[in-house]
Design a protein around this nucleic acid. Structure first.
Length: 880
RNA sequence: GCCCGGAUGGCGGAAUCGGCAGACGCAGCGGACUUAAAAUCCGCAGACCUUUACCGGUCGUGGGGGUUCAAGUCCCCCUCUGGGCACCA
């Protein structure tokens, strides 16, 4: 109901009393009224069960971290999802639109340190505050399925999945490097390492430590994760490209070089051996030690141009060599130190390369030549085999390194146009890396093209037992151990007798203790709680120690959207058939910052669950939408930049409807949005205009009489604009999602309505037409400004539930223009505009154009060379 | 270095398939209402030239070239800018 004041005003207007009584749009009052009503109906936004006859639609926005307050990025993200959910309800779908909390993570521990509040309490009170904000904005979430990842009824299933993966060999333990701050005495997440230093201790350089960690074997799925991408056309190409690069598949070959024994070296060789800058030629009787160095290369075709091997400083063989060579040991330590400092300085690409000769040589299995073995700080231990063959002539990095240390540079491929004549190659060309080339100086492979040589040389290696064609991925297994408190305990035990023993499923969940003391010292507080650490081995009944690491929070978000479909299941993470009804997610909406980690992990998790028989879908998300950032004064809103605008403040000043509608109006949803407060005021003014118009004329919409077929020109014009608007918005929801132009279209419609007020007042627009316009307008506002829409719906006498009221249908005949304006160009320049019937053919248009006075005078005395007539579009007369 | 976006009035943006560039909104200017202001309503509004005015003309979508009757849109080259990855062999 409208306020008393407004009812009076409307009554006066209806009785023809012209005394102006101001009708004011007061979003605060309207929104409070409807919020109270909506909150009294807990099932308002409830999805129907999976047995529903209706077609399902699962729309999902990425769940927030409960930091304590919504920011504008949230409001934008959720306004997009909310508009879509409301639209799909109005289209008659069974809509699932849930929300939850990504509630584990570091900030809770930091807050605990700062305010002496337990992480759980801090997190839960933040959740309560943010939930209230969400309801205040009017988002249509089905809170019955709310999930909170830090509560045992959720995280117990993380543990359950972990055990299932352990059984299948998908979870394993190995040593791995972690960032360690000696002052905090704890491990840091990558995000907490700023310029190589601890985020809390700015002068403290972060160390790398080797720790035993749990890993999930995502690399088992690398190929499938890559292959599926090409079929996922509901995802932005940008995200797919980012994922492809992240997975980083490289085809190449693995080749084993045998270390040379060297004890029977000739005198000449001895001199050279000390320097390690040149190869030793092949000769009969060279002996090997039997020890092999495996290298990975994508360019085995250039192997005759390899003039050294380069090992990563951390390579196991380097450690072995250094063990008996103090000089080498010191040099390698120096390399590592230099490397660490260089990485701190940033700009990895510009870092100068360093290396040390080991004193050893290895035999090129193709040529028999002996290559000096070096340690190069530009070699990554954890990619490929941690060792490469260095081909200075045909690799940028190897070239730089060889120039610096005076290593040999041998050309083995040439551009096809060069022919074999230029046997030594053109030195100005180097490094020359094109694969559109021919081989030279490469024994029996000479004059082959690179690609052919790659295949043949890999086959040769395999036939001779020293190598093979192989595929390498950049993607690494997912380390999930975190030496932190506020996360899911990893359900594993360590028994002196039985080793690593999983916690039996019947003992889940392993509860995260709550009475912890969080201090800045000494890693996870769990390790200092004997009542947590000490346990009994389920195998032998003896003493066992509990794992004190917790899981990466990305585990929580890898499968949360499945839990929404069956959030209260205490027998399983979810029921398979319920998931089969709802999945895949029809539309997922969130920030592009999750393009890689979250969106790869959750794809991986889905495939694991599929292989376990828990789900039937291969991929979790059918369509993905990534909205742009919210920018203000040229930068992303952030506390440090001081350009944050609080949603609460906007809502108080302009109302929730105006705030969320502006977030959709100011830019297309996929682009960055420049926040301008005056723009919010403008949207608020627009809503106010709608409100006042409806209050003035809404009475006349109430009788709902059928429209007369005999329409006045004013009615026709109004209906045309109305149906054009319905068509535009309907088509946009189906495809483009340019909600900014949808809202602009609604504004145009309202402009047309207010412009027609004279005709409306003069009775030239019957109640039926006015009613149709007002009803449809209200329905179209519902996804964008739900509070106002509900208020108007009630005021114009509708009693049905607006949330599920059918979306208006457009009438193509009514939307069609009767007269259209056709621009007339002469030689491509606009000279006149003629008005013709909408379905005028080519001849009619041409005649009209030629008859136009201005056109006639302009072409008088000129020769018409050509005339292009595009019906309904334009006419261009080409004259000479 | 590599891979994606983006660049249109004073500002945010529109132009979905190559067919009237600047929809819609903001800010601005002029007017109405008002004692006044706010609010509201009406109108103007890319730049330049011409003109008392009307009318008219030229230029114009980051820059340069091209294709076409016609280019913000397609092709080639370049600049700036935002983002992602980054010694991945």
């Amino acid at each position: 109901m409208a306020t008393k004041e407004q009812a009076e005003a409307a009554a006066k207007a209806a009785t023809g009393d012209s005394t102006p009584i101001e009708v004011r749009y007061m979003p605060g009052e309207i929104e409070a009224k409807w919020q109270a009503r909506w909150e009294a109906q807990p099932d308002l936004y409830a999805a129907e069960p999976a047995s529903s006859e209706k077609k399902k639609y699962y729309v999902l926005e990425m769940l927030p971290y409960p930091s304590g307050a919504l920011h504008m990025g949230h409001v934008r993200n959720y306004s997009i999802g909310d508009a879509l959910a409301r639209y799909m309800w109005m289209q008659g779908y069974n809509v699932l639109h849930p929300m939850g909390w990504d509630a584990f993570g570091l900030p809770a521990e930091n807050a605990a340190l700062k305010n002496n509040t337990p992480p759980r309490q801090w997190t839960l009170s933040n959740i309560a505050a943010m939930k209230e904000q969400m309801n205040r904005v009017g988002f249509s979430y089905d809170w019955r399925n709310e999930i909170t990842t830090c509560l045992p009824d959720y995280y117990r299933w993380n543990q359950w999945f972990f055990l299932r993966m352990y059984e299948r060999g998908l979870a394993y333990r190995k040593k791995s490097k972690v960032n360690w701050c000696p002052q905090c005495a704890t491990v840091l997440a990558n995000e907490q390492v700023v310029n190589g230093c601890c985020w809390r201790h700015e002068e403290q350089i972060v160390e790398q430590r080797d720790l035993e960690q749990w890993f999930l074997r995502i690399t088992n799925y690398a190929q499938e994760l890559l292959d599926e991408l090409s079929k996922m056309d509901g995802w932005p190409e940008k995200v797919r490209t980012m994922q492809r690069n992240w997975i980083g598949r490289s085809e190449g070959a693995e080749i084993a070089f045998e270390l040379e024994d060297g004890s029977d070296a000739t005198e000449e060789e001895e001199k050279e051996r000390k320097k390690g800058t040149a190869m030793l030629p092949a000769r009969a009787g060279v002996k090997g030690t039997g020890q092999k160095i495996k290298v990975f290369t994508t360019r085995v075709d250039t192997i005759y141009g390899a003039t050294s091997l380069q090992l990563a400083p951390e390579h196991a063989l380097v450690k072995e060599m250094a063990a008996s060579d103090a000089g080498l040991s010191d040099a390698v330590a120096g390399l590592l130190e230099q490397q660490r400092k260089a990485r701190e300085a940033g700009d990895v690409g510009a870092i100068e390369k360093h290396g040390v000769f080991t004193g050893y040589y290895a035999i090129n299995p193709y040529s028999g030549e002996r290559l000096p073995v070096w340690v190069g700080d530009y070699i990554l231990l954890d990619y490929g085999t941690g060792a490469i063959m260095s081909v200075p002539a045909h690799d940028d990095r190897d070239y730089e390194f060889a120039k610096k240390y005076g290593l040999e540079i041998r050309v083995v491929i040439l551009p096809r146009s060069h022919g074999e004549a230029a046997a030594n190659g053109d030195r100005d060309l180097l490094p020359y890396t094109s694969e559109d080339s021919l081989l030279i100086n490469s024994g029996e492979f000479n004059s082959m093209g690179c690609e052919e040589a790659q295949t043949k040389m890999a086959a040769y290696a395999e036939a001779h037992g020293f190598g093979k064609a192989t595929v390498t991925f950049r993607l690494k297994d997912w380390g999930i151990s975190r030496q932190r408190y506020w996360g899911t305990p990893i359900p594993m035990l360590y028994c002196a007798k039985d080793g690593i023993v999983p916690v039996p499923e019947s003992e889940l969940p392993v509860l995260l203790p709550e009475n912890v003391e969080i201090t800045q010292q000494g890693g996870s507080p769990l390790a200092r709680m004997p009542e947590f650490v000490n346990a009994t081995c389920p195998k032998c009944g003896g003493k066992a120690l509990r794992e004190t690491d917790t899981m990466d929070t990305f585990v929580d978000s890898s499968w949360y959207f499945y839990r929404y479909t069956d959030a209260h299941n205490d027998k399983a993470p979810f029921a398979t058939d319920t998931v089969a009804y709802w999945f895949p997610i029809d539309q997922y909406i969130g920030g592009v910052e999750h393009a890689i980690l979250h969106l790869i992990y959750s794809r991986f998790w889905t495939k694991v669950m599929r292989d376990m028989g828990l789900v039937k879908n291969d991929e979790p998300v059918e369509r993905l939408f990534t909205q742009g950032m919210v920018i203000r004064n040229g930068a992303k809103m952030s506390k440090s930049k001081g350009n944050v605008v609080s949603p609460d403040e906007m809502i108080v000043r302009f109302g929730a409807d105006a705030t969320r509608m502006y977030s959709l109006f100011a830019a297309p949803p996929d682009r960055d949005l420049d926040w301008q407060e005056d723009g919010v005021a403008g949207v608020s003014r627009f809503l106010s205009r709608v409100y006042r118009f409806a209050m003035k004329h809404g009475e006349r919409a109430r009788d709902g009489a059928a429209r007369d077929t005999n329409l006045s020109p004013e009615s026709q014009a109004l209906l045309r604009k109305l149906h054009q608007t319905i068509r535009k918005i309907t088509e946009d929801f189906a495809g483009r999602w340019h909600f900014n132009t949808c809202i602009a279209a609604i504004m145009e419609l309202v402009n047309a309505l207010t412009a027609a007020e004279g005709a409306i007042g003069a009775g030239k627009v019957p109640d039926a037409v006015l009613g149709e316009a007002l009803r449809s307008l209200t329905l179209m506002l519902a996804p964008f400004a739900p509070y106002l829409a509900f208020e108007l719906w009630e005021y114009i006498g509708e009693t049905s539930d607006l949330l599920r009221a059918p979306w208006p249908k457009f009438d193509e005949a009514l939307a069609r223009e009767e007269q259209i304006e056709i621009p007339v160009q002469i030689n491509g320049k606009l000279r006149a505009v003629v008005t013709v019937g909408a379905d005028a053919g080519e001849d009619t248009v041409r005649d009209a154009a030629l008859k136009d006075e201005k056109i006639a005078s302009l072409i008088a005395g000129k020769e018409i060379v050509r005339m292009i007539v595009v019906p309904r579009k334009l006419i261009n007369i080409v004259v000479k």
